[in-house]
Every structure is written in C-alpha cells, then in structure tokens.
C-alpha cells in the first residue's frame, strides 16, 4: 500500500498551463478519481504521476519516496491506457507477462503468476490469442492483467472504460472497484464520466482548466458543490442555477428537489420528457429555464401554468461574481422564503 502526494505541481507548455499548481493526496489503498471535461488537465496530471511527462514545478511523492525525478519504471506504479496499448504481435499471455520478462522473473514464477491473474480476470481460455482476436472488453481485461501481475502498490488508469459500450462499462466499473479493494491497490482513475466517479471513488478531484475545482468524497461533491461549475458538472440533469432577479447571489436547486404543484413561484411548462422512472419537465421562470425531475409520468401541455417550490435545506447559494459556494446566506430574501417553502 502506498500513499500518493501531489504537491503544487504545474505543467507548462509554452503559454498554456495544462496543470496549474495542483495539490492533493490519495490515501493508501483508496481509489481517487480525477474528473473533469476534456482538456481540464486530468490526463496530464496522471501522466505526471506516472513520470511519462516531467513536471514544470512541484513535487510528487509515492509511498513516502520523492519520485519527481525518477523514471516511470522506478516509481512502483502500473498503468492502464485508454487505448490499452497492447502489443499487437504478442499473445495475451506474452502481453501480460511482458513486464516480468523485462525484469527477468523466473519461468516457474512467471507461469504461476500468469495463471493466478488469468483466473482472476477470466482470461484462462484466451491466453494464446492475439489482441486483434479479442473483443473490446477482453482487451480491457488483458490490459488490467498486465497492470496487476506486476503487484505494484499503485495503479494508474487513463479513461480505461471509454472505448466500451454502456452495458460492459457498468460491469467493468464494478469489477475494477472490487479488484482494487481486494488487492488493496492505491488507484488513480481518470474519467470525464461523472457516473464512474460517483460510483467508484473514495475521493473525487474535479478539475477545470488545469486547476482543482473541488476535492471531496462523491457524496459531498453532490450534496455541497463548492462552485457553480461543480454543481452543474455532477448530477443529471444538472443543477438549476437561477438568479431570480438578484444581482449578488445565485440560487442553485437540483431538479430532483423541485416540487411541482400549486404553491411557490409561478412558472410555465415548456416541455416534458418522459424517461420511464421519472419525467424531466422544463419550466420557464421569469426569463430563466428550470428543469424539474418529477417521479413517474407527468403529462403537461406546453404553456400550462404551474408553481415551483422546494425545501429550504435543498437550496445552494453561490456568489454571483465568483461562482463560489456561500454557506453564510441564512436570511434568504423574504419574498422567496414566503413563496417557496413547502
């Protein structure tokens, strides 16, 4: 088990700051997810930890050792690439034991460890195949196998599931999480998919334009988003951010917390999208659009009048100028309170 510490690390290419003064720590044996939209610097951060890129400034420590200036092979890490990076001319078995061969592990031990990993990942019958003869999910397993056979304390994952279909992704998510917990690996996992982050992580680092937007457990990220960006990145559909005519504050309310009925703010239904378990209703409130997640099937004609209300503790306040969360706003405007408290 090894703790990973990233200490004010930056990566600069010319004028672009791909990673800008990022600091965080992943506890030993935990799964940390680096989450964010394309180009936010999450993959670069991972490659900096791996040593595939060199830092412009800052330090990286793995298991207490400063690895900032060490080559990738000396950092006690394994990595799974988005493209899997399997060697196309080698069999599954040769791909998995590649690293053991490099390090001249004995043939007997190599066979024994290969058998163990193959059984763990259900690859027993595929060992003689070439990667091109495997499905996407099987290739993913081979890449995983190559990472865990090394028995390194840290495993880095660069969007490992983005090439799989939705069904398989769901399965692999659970499998990777179970494997990580069983083997006690410290895992850093890069993804742009908030579902992966929410369902797998012990800790989520949400990144934006090279900086950390929020570093928190998944439940906290959902319940107490630190910024408007975090609020809108987590949750489907995203949180409603309404100004309701105020200049200094923004009101955030999740679609699942809005109640449709005969109390609260006046609104007009624009459209209703039935999804099975619930219906997403788009309502116009003044000049703004608010989404409501109503349970079951709700039929509305376009343009029908309705009223929106919500519980006081479901409200998130954000500073309109900085976009940061404000927990100090206790006295919500009188008119709003009167109209909205159910």
């Amino acid at each position: 088990m090894a703790r990973i510490e990233v200490d004010s690390v930056s990566k600069v290419w010319g004028a672009t700051r791909a990673v800008d003064g990022v600091s965080f720590a992943a506890g030993a044996g935990s799964l940390l997810v680096l989450l964010g939209p394309s180009g936010c610097g999450k993959s670069t951060t991972l490659r900096l930890i791996a040593g595939l890129e060199s830092v412009s400034s800052g330090r990286i420590r793995i298991g207490g050792t400063d690895v900032t200036d060490l080559p990738p092979a000396k950092r006690q890490i394994a990595m799974v690439f988005q493209s899997y990076a399997l060697f196309p001319h080698l069999t599954v078995a040769e791909n998995i034991v590649f690293g053991l061969r490099v390090r001249r592990t004995g043939a007997a031990e190599r066979r024994e460890r290969l058998a163990r990993v193959a059984a763990l990942l259900g690859l027993d019958k595929l060992l003689d195949r070439k990667p091109a003869q495997l499905s996407g999910g099987q290739q993913q397993r081979v890449a995983l196998g190559r990472a865990i056979i090394a028995e390194k304390p840290v495993c880095l994952m660069d969007e490992p599931l983005s090439n799989l279909d939705a069904q398989l992704r769901h399965e692999m998510r659970r499998e990777i999480r179970a494997l990580q917990q069983k083997l006690g690996i410290t895992m850093v996992y890069v993804t742009h998919d908030q579902t992966e982050a929410m369902s797998m992580a012990d800790q989520v680092i949400l990144m934006r334009e090279g900086r950390i937007e929020q570093d928190a457990a998944p439940a906290v990220l959902y319940a107490k988003p630190a910024t408007v960006f975090a609020a809108r990145f987590i949750g489907t559909p995203p949180m409603n951010i309404l100004s309701l005519g105020r200049k200094d504050l923004l009101l955030g309310i999740r679609p699942e917390d809005v109640i449709l009925g005969d109390r609260g703010i006046e609104a007009q239904v624009e459209s209703a999208e039935y999804l099975g378990a619930d219906t997403i209703v788009a309502c116009r409130v003044g000049g703004e659009l608010a989404l409501v997640r109503a349970p079951g099937r709700v039929d509305f004609a376009s343009g029908a009048p309705t009223r929106l209300s919500w519980r006081r503790d479901a409200i998130h306040w954000f500073d309109a100028a900085t976009g940061r969360r404000r927990d100090d706003v206790t006295d919500a405007p009188q008119d709003l309170i009167r109209e909205t408290i159910a």
Binding site: A50, L52, P71, P72, A73, K74, I77, A78, M79, F81, A85, F98, G99, V102, R103, R146, A150
Partner: peptide, 9 residues
C-alpha cells in the same frame, strides 16, 4: 513505448 517504459524495458 510508454507501456514498455513503465515496465522498465
């Protein structure tokens, strides 16, 4: 090449 470098090749 990166995958191989990680393995110390």
């Amino acid at each position: 090449a990166e995958a191989a470098a990680l393995e110390g090749a």
